[in-house]
């Protein structure tokens, strides 16, 4: 049932090396190299902060946390989810040259891309945490909870990657569709608007629950809970249970899809 994840675990060293190669490849020919992996997200955070707090004048503190810090931490989580998902769903398609030429366990490819996204994320995370710690002049043990949420994010990404990558390998249209979904999720997930804002809508109370169904929200909210609000994941057991149930389901489905579709997408790639 978990055949491909066993494979990933057995080949964790290979995944690690390949993801570093991937980083090398990504920044091959640039002078600044992996530095760009930091500059790009920082710029995006800056743009969003400018648009919302200066342009739209919506940048008030969120439950006591300064908007810029609140936005940044949420975005750090979002970038991991976004990049990991985007890269892993395309992983079979983008690595077709290798798949078609070299015999190796291709089931690890989504994991390679997720590891690549994760390493880029780690750099950004460390930088952002340092800046936040200096800016807020406070630090707490709850920050360690980010390790848990990173782990949760990785598991979610592996599940999503395992489910989507084989389908994208067969259908290019599905890949386009997922890209569109990602944009949708970005705006629908409370990343630069607080979920608190939904509480004002009396008749549309269910929207809050729909938004919460999005597993990405669990991670983004978890990041903020850890850094600003000192809330443990055990304090919302139902939501945590829902998240892991979903991850579990995705993992099983991903394994099944991979086994079913491998012969098909090998021919179609």
């Amino acid at each position: 049932m978990f055949m491909i994840y066993k494979e990933m675990w057995n080949r964790r060293k290979m995944i690690h090396t390949l993801s570093l190669q991937e980083m090398k490849r990504e920044y091959a020919g640039t002078v600044l190299g992996a530095f760009w992996g930091l500059v790009n997200p920082l710029m995006r955070i800056a743009v969003f902060w400018f648009v919302f707090s200066v342009g739209a004048r919506a940048g008030g503190p969120v439950n006591g946390a300064p908007f810029i810090a609140w936005l940044s931490i949420g975005m750090v989580a979002w970038f991991l989810l976004n990049d990991g998902f985007k890269l892993s769903q395309k992983s079979f398609r983008s690595k077709r040259n290798i798949i078609k030429n070299t015999p190796f366990p291709i089931s690890i490819l989504p994991a390679v891309q997720i590891a690549f996204a994760f390493y880029t994320h780690l750099i950004l995370l460390v930088v952002m945490l340092v800046i936040t710690a200096i800016g807020l002049k406070s630090i707490s043990f709850y920050w360690l909870q980010i390790l848990y949420y990173d782990f949760a994010a990785l598991m979610l990404l592996i599940g999503l990657g395992a489910v989507t990558a084989p389908i994208v390998a067969v259908s290019k249209d599905f890949g386009r569709f997922l890209d569109t979904i990602l944009v949708f999720l970005f705006w629908m997930t409370p990343i630069f608007w607080s979920i608190e804002n939904l509480k004002g809508l009396e008749q549309l109370w269910f929207i809050e629950y729909i938004v919460k169904l999005n597993p990405f929200h669990y991670i983004v909210q978890g990041y903020r809970d850890s850094v600003f609000y000192q809330v443990g994941f055990w304090e919302q057991p139902v939501y945590t249970l829902y998240f892991w149930g979903l991850v579990f389901f995705l993992l099983i489905l991903g394994n099944y899809l991979y086994k079913r579709m491998k012969p098909i997408f090998l021919d179609l790639l």
């Binding site: 190669q21 490849r25 091959a28 070299t102």
Partner: peptide, 15 residues
């Protein structure tokens, strides 16, 4: 995209 040198390690890893 990679250099010949990096490709040696890349291919080695895959194998």
């Amino acid at each position: 995209e990679l250099s010949g040198y990096d490709n040696i390690f890349m291919k080695g890893t895959l194998l």
